[in-house]
Amino acid sequence: MWGLTLAGVIALLALDFLVTRRPHEVSMKEAAGWSAFYIALPLAFGGWIWSQYGQQTGVEYLTGYLVEKSLSVDNLFVFMLLLTAFAVPAVLQQRVLLWGIIGALVLRGIFIALGAAFLANFAVAFLVFGIILLATGVKILRDQVTGAGHDVDVATMRSVRLIRRFMPVTDDYRGTRMSVVENGRRMLTPFAVVVVAVFATDIVFAVDSVPAVYGITGDPYLVFATNAFALLGLRALYFVLQGALSKLVHLGYGLAAILGFIGVKLVLHWAHGVWPGVPTIPTVWSLVVIVAILGVVTATSLYATRGEDGDAEGSAHVAEPGAQHHR
Rank of each mutant, 00 (worst) to 15 (best):
T5W: 15
L18Q: 01
R22T: 10
E25D: 11
V26N: 00
S27L: 01
G33R: 05
W34V: 02
F37V: 14
F37S: 01
L41H: 05
L43S: 06
G47V: 07
I49M: 05
Q55G: 05
Q56N: 11
T57A: 10
V59I: 15
T63R: 06
Y65M: 04
L66I: 03
L66H: 00
V67Y: 08
V67M: 06
L71R: 09
L71F: 15
D74T: 09
V78R: 08
L81K: 15
A85C: 06
A90W: 10
R95T: 13
W99F: 15
G100I: 00
V106P: 12
L107Y: 12
G115F: 11
F118G: 05
F118K: 10
A125H: 03
F129M: 14
G130A: 00
L134C: 13
A135C: 06
T136H: 01
T136V: 04
I140F: 12
D143A: 12
V154P: 03
A155G: 09
S159G: 12
F166S: 14
M167A: 12
M167C: 08
T170S: 12
R174V: 07
G175S: 02
M178N: 07
S179V: 01
V180W: 09
V180F: 07
V181Y: 02
E182H: 10
V195Y: 03
V195I: 14
V196T: 03
I203F: 14
A206N: 11
D208G: 00
V210H: 05
P211M: 08
Y214D: 00
T217D: 04
G218Q: 10
D219W: 00
T226G: 04
F229Q: 13
L234S: 02
A236T: 01
A236V: 03
Q242A: 12
Q242I: 05
A244W: 13
L245R: 11
S246V: 11
H250C: 06
G254A: 08
L259D: 09
L268V: 00
H272E: 04
G273W: 04
P279S: 00
P279M: 02
I281V: 13
T283Q: 09
T283W: 11
L287I: 03
L287R: 08
V288D: 06
I290W: 07
I290M: 05
V291R: 00
L294E: 10
L294W: 09
G295V: 12
V296T: 12
V297E: 11
L302Y: 12
Y303I: 00
A304L: 04
T305P: 01
T305L: 01
D309P: 02
D309V: 05
G310A: 09
G310T: 05
D311R: 14
A312M: 07
A312S: 03
E313I: 03
V318W: 11
V318L: 15
E320S: 11
H326S: 01
